[in-house]
Simulated assay, not measured.
Amino acid sequence: MVDRACEAALYGDGDAGLDAGASVLVGDGGQWGGVGRELLGRGEAYVRQAWERGWQPADVLRLVGRDLGERHLRITRDLIAAEARWYARLPERWTDAEVWWAADGEYGEALVRREKSDRFSLATAVLEVFRLLIRLPSIEAVGPLPGDPVGDALEHAHLEPRMLGRIRALLAKAEATNFPDEAEALSAKAQELMARHTVDEALLAASGKVPAQVPVACRIGVKAPYEEAKAVLLDAVATANRCRAVWNSAFEFSTVVGFESDLEAVELLYTSLLVQGTAAMTRAEAAQRSGGRKRTKTFRQSFLLAYASRLGQRLAETAEHTAAEAPDNLPALVARDVAVTSRADEMFPRTTTTRLRGATDHAGWEDGTAAADRAHMATRRSSLPR
C-alpha cells in the first residue's frame, strides 16, 4: 500500500497524485497501524538520503517550515527522531527531537490523537513531506554523518563554559536593557571576550600545548523578510570572529566556516544583534509613524542594511584592537586565518556575488546607523559571497 501511495504521490507536481496516494493509505482503516509503521520506515530512509546529500536536520526543518506548514514540521521532526535513534552518538548540532510514541506500530493512531485530525489529511501531510525530502538537491556537507566513525573520532575545542556563561550573560543584558549606551558597552565587552579567546586559542595551538584543531563549518538560518540585511550582518559577525560566511539565498541559510569555538561565538553574537536590531527598528518605526510616515517596508529595509553595515565597521575595530594589543600574536592569528580561508575555498570553489537592493529610505538609513552605533557592531559590504 505504501509503495503504491508513494508511486502515485511523490513524482508529480499537482494535488491529484497526493489525493490518490492518501486515498490508498486510508482505503482500509483496519490497516492504519501497519501503514503508520511503514511510513515511519520510509521516512527514515528519505531523511537519511537527505543527510547523505549534505543536509542536516535544521536545514530540512527550515525548508519544511517555509514551504509547508506547522503540522508538516511536527511530522518531519518525528521522522528525524525515528532515524536518529539508531545511532549511539550523533554529530554536534544535530537534533534534539525524540521518539514520543510507544511503538512504531502505534505511531499512526498516536499521530491522529496528537494532531486531532482525520487520517486522510495526515496521510496527505506525510506524503507532502516525503515529496519535499526526495527532491532535495545535493549541497555542501558541513560535517560528518550520524554513525560515521571518522566523525566520532573528531574533537573540537569549544568555548570554555565559564567564558560562555559570561558572554551569554552580557548579551542577555544587552538585549534586555532600554538604555542604548548600556547595550553598546555590554555587546562590545562580549565581542572583546570572544576576540581574546580566539587569540588565546591560536597561541595554544601554535605552541603545541593542545591537540591540533581544524576548521569546521555550520549553517545558520537567514530567513525572510529582509534576508539580505540579515546576511550582511551575519557576514560581518563572522568576519570579525575570523570566520568566513557564504550565503545561500535559495535555501535561507549561510554556511559559516571557522574553528569550533569561533563558530559558537558567531552564533551567539549574531542572534543577539539581530534581536537588538529588530527591537531598535520597531522603536524607530513607531516614532516615524507617529510623525505621519507610512513607508514601512522601505524604512525597515534601509534601517537593517544601515544597522548591519555600521555594525560591521565597529565589530572589525574591536577585533583589530584586541589583536593589535600584542603584535607577537600576529603569526598565530594569520595561520588560523589561512586555515579558515583554505577550508572555505575547498568547500566553495565557485562562489558568486550578488548586488544588494538599495537603501532608499534616508530616515531608515539614519536611524539604522544610529542604532548600530548604540549596539556597537558589523561591516559595510557591497556584495556577499554566494
Rank of each mutant, 00 (worst) to 15 (best):
R66N: 05
V47F: 09
D78I: 00
R71I: 07
A45S: 13
A84Q: 01
P57K: 02
I75Y: 05
E38Y: 12
L39G: 02
W55P: 03
W51V: 04
Y87A: 05
G41E: 09
R62Q: 11
I75T: 10
V60L: 13
R77T: 02
L79H: 00
R66Q: 14
L61G: 07
A84S: 10
R48C: 13
I80S: 00
H72C: 12
R66E: 13
W51T: 02
W51K: 01
R85C: 07
Y87H: 15
L73P: 02
L61D: 06
T76L: 05
G33D: 10
V35Y: 03
A58M: 09
G30C: 04
G30E: 06
G41D: 09
D67A: 12
L79M: 10
W51G: 02
G69F: 08
I75A: 02
G43A: 04
R37K: 12
R71D: 14
R85H: 11
L68G: 02
W86D: 14
A50K: 03
I75G: 04
L63F: 14
G34N: 07
A45Q: 13
W51Q: 08
V35G: 03
L68I: 05
L61S: 11
P57H: 03
L63A: 08
W32Q: 06
G65L: 07
A84P: 00
W86A: 14
A81L: 00
A45K: 13
R37M: 13
G33F: 04
V64T: 12
G65E: 12
R74P: 03
E44H: 09
G65F: 01
L63D: 10
R37D: 13
A58C: 10
T76N: 04
E70F: 11
R77Q: 10
W55I: 02
R42L: 09
L40Y: 04
A84F: 01
D78Q: 06
G54V: 10
L39P: 01
I75V: 13
R74L: 15
L68R: 03
E38Q: 14
R62F: 03
E70V: 14
I80N: 01
R85L: 07
A82L: 00
G65D: 11
I75L: 12
D59H: 13
L40K: 06
A45W: 09
G30V: 00
G33T: 07
R77A: 08
Q56W: 14
G43I: 00
Y87V: 05
G33S: 12
E44D: 11
Q56E: 15
G69Y: 07
G41P: 00
A50C: 06
Y46A: 08
I80T: 04
D59E: 10
V64Q: 03
E52M: 11
R48W: 15
A50R: 06
R77G: 05
D59G: 12
R85S: 10
R85I: 08
G41A: 11
L40E: 06
G41W: 02
E70H: 13
R74M: 13
A58W: 04
L39M: 15
I80A: 01
E38H: 08
R53F: 06
Q56R: 15
R53C: 06
I75Q: 01
P57G: 04
Y46F: 15
Q49K: 13
H72I: 01
I80V: 07
G33N: 12
G65W: 04
H72D: 10
W55C: 03
E38A: 15
R77K: 11
G43T: 00
D78G: 02
E38N: 10
V60A: 00
